[in-house]
Amino acid sequence: MARPRTPKGRCLRTHEELKTEYPDAECELDYKNAFQLLAATILSAQATDVSVNKATPDLFKRFPNPEELSVANVEEVETYINSIGLFRGKAKNLVGMAQRLVEEFDGQVPESMGDLVSLPGVGRKTANVVRSVALGLPGLPVDTHVGRLARRLAITEENDPVKIELALNPMLPAQERGEFSLRVILHGRRVCFARKPNCDECALNYFCPSAFTL
C-alpha cells in the first residue's frame, strides 16, 4: 500500500487503520448520562480512568444530578474523591459546575463549546469529550497521547492542545473526530508509548515517519 505523503493523508490513513485495530473503541470512563460524563471527565484530569471509575459510583449515588450536587458541601464531596489526585480543587469545581448548570442551564449539560468551557473545571478537552461521547456532536479531545502521535506521524508540529485540535479538525469528517481521538488514545496507551514505542506491533509503522527511530 502506498505511503500517504501529506499531513491530511497520514491523518486519514491513521483513522482508517485504527478503525480496524480498535473497531469497538469507546470512552473508558463509566457514566450513564451527560452530567455524569462531565463530572467524571473533570475528575480525570491528571488521573487515570481506572481511579475515577472506582470513585464515581458512590459519588453519583450520593449526588445523582446537578441539583443535588449544587447544594453539596465541598468537604463532603472531597470524601468521595480523595483517592484521586488534586481532589480538593476538583471537589470545588464539581460543586461550582453543578451550580452553574442549575442556575444558567436549567440543570442540563449545554451543547455549545462556549457554554461548556464557561463551567468551572472545564477546558476544551473536557468539553470535546462530552460533546463527542455523550451528546453526539463533533468534538476532538486532545490529550497527551493524541498530541504525541500527531507529531510522530507528522500530522502536525504543534505542541499546544488547542492548536493541535484546530489543525486536525479540517482533516477529518466532523462526526468522526471523536472516534479518531478515542482510537488514537487507545493506540498511545497500548502501542505507541511515550518511551520505547512498540513499532514492531504498530499497524501504522509502514508510513509513520518516526517508526523505528525512537
Rank of each mutant, 00 (worst) to 15 (best):
K54M: 07
A55V: 00
A55S: 09
T56W: 01
T56R: 03
P57F: 08
P57K: 09
P57N: 11
R62T: 11
F63W: 04
P64A: 03
P64N: 08
N65Y: 00
N65K: 07
N65P: 00
N65F: 01
E67H: 13
E68V: 03
E68Y: 02
E68S: 11
L69H: 05
L69D: 03
L69S: 05
L69T: 02
S70N: 05
V71R: 14
A72T: 02
N73D: 15
V74T: 14
V74P: 06
E75S: 15
E75N: 13
V77G: 12
I81T: 09
N82R: 15
S83Y: 06
L86I: 08
F87W: 13
F87H: 15
F87R: 11
F87D: 08
R88K: 15
G89K: 04
K90I: 05
K90Q: 03
A91P: 08
A91D: 03
A91G: 04
A91S: 14
K92Y: 01
K92R: 14
K92N: 06
L94F: 06
V95P: 07
V95L: 05
G96T: 11
M97H: 00
A98C: 09
A98T: 01
A98W: 00
A98M: 05
Q99C: 04
Q99L: 01
L101D: 05
E103Q: 12
E103A: 12
F105Q: 10
D106S: 13
G107P: 09
V109E: 06
P110S: 13
S112W: 12
M113R: 13
M113E: 15
M113I: 15
G114H: 11
G114I: 02
D115C: 07
D115E: 15
D115T: 13
L116D: 10
S118Q: 13
P120T: 11
G121F: 10
V122L: 08
G123N: 10
R124Y: 13
R124M: 05
A127D: 08
A127Y: 04
N128P: 11
N128M: 11
V129R: 06
V129I: 12
V129E: 06
V130A: 02
R131V: 08
S132H: 13
A134D: 10
A134N: 06
A134Y: 00
G136N: 05
